Computed example of a mutant assay.
Amino acid sequence: MTSENRTSHLTGVRGAELAWSESGHGPTAIWAHGLTSSGGGQEAAGIFDWSPLTARHRLVRYDARGHGGSSGAPEPEHYTWPNLSLDLLELLDEIAGDEQVDGLGSSMGTATLLYAVTTKPERFRRLVLTTPPTMGAERAVHVRGYLEDAALIEGSGLAAYKEAFAAEPPPHVHTGLTQNPPAVEVTETLLPSILRGASRSDLPADSALTTVDLPVLILAWSGDAGHPLSTARHLADVIPGARLQIADTPMQLRTWPDLATEFLG
């Protein structure tokens, strides 16, 4: 990861304190991370490196409610994707004023951005949506998994969840990561509620996605049942003008920062 200076902040949003950092200068771009991670967690694990964006953008990385340094309550409904999108929109009101921003997301963060852009489209200029999660009928298996994991944590503790998480084989594109699997950056107290919130969530309906009227780049990787190519291809079909790029190898995954930087301009 490229060295960069980051300034850290806490901002009150809808009854929670959201932790976020900023680095670089220029138009604002905001990064929304995946489930159980944090604003810098996936980069620390070596999955992504968004630091090249800071040459052209003010890059904001924030911790979603209940993740990393952000506070939260043990209320599953607080962690549904539509509710997380309201957190994002209010955070942007607080830290970016009426500026139109670029958004980058991963999995839960991609879902958060999609709900945010379909709620308040004028807020965003361009979107980079990485590793879209399951949706529709494919999501049922993962809903059961979230509920089973929540029960596992409540019955056997966070260590048992981390052990089960670490036993799952990573996709081929993750070969050679600094940290595999990435760290779980959620407390034992909150994680069951966060997982139950995810179990109550799905991506926006196609009727909403077809209204997205801005440039969208979708970055997906192969070999990951939790982030299937079927979702990425569906989003590329439904969102007008969306571009899709697929990574099958670690080398292709490492091109994503440059692809995103070029796309956002």
Rank of each mutant, 00 (worst) to 15 (best):
H25C: 07
R125Y: 01
G12T: 14
A29C: 13
A164H: 06
S207C: 05
P52K: 07
D258T: 09
L89N: 05
D206S: 13
E22K: 09
R139N: 08
A236T: 11
E77K: 12
E99M: 02
G34S: 15
P133C: 06
A220L: 05
A16M: 04
G136A: 12
S71V: 10
M1C: 10
M108F: 03
L191N: 03
I30A: 15
R233F: 09
Y62Q: 00
S37C: 14
R6S: 11
A96E: 02
L10H: 12
Y62M: 01
M1V: 13
S70V: 06
E185W: 01
W81P: 00
S23A: 15
V184F: 02
T210Y: 04
T130N: 10
S70R: 03
P27S: 07
S222V: 04
P182F: 15
A260Y: 01
G72K: 06
T28N: 02
D224T: 08
T211N: 08
T80V: 09
G46F: 09
L84E: 01
G176P: 03
S70C: 06
P82N: 00
P82K: 00
P192M: 03
P133R: 03
R14Y: 14
D49A: 09
H67W: 10
D224N: 14
R125K: 07
D87C: 08
P76D: 14
P76T: 15
D237E: 15
L229K: 06
L264M: 03
A164R: 14
D213F: 10
S107C: 14
D98N: 15
R125I: 03
L217A: 05
W31L: 13
Q100H: 04
G12Y: 09
S207F: 08
A151K: 10
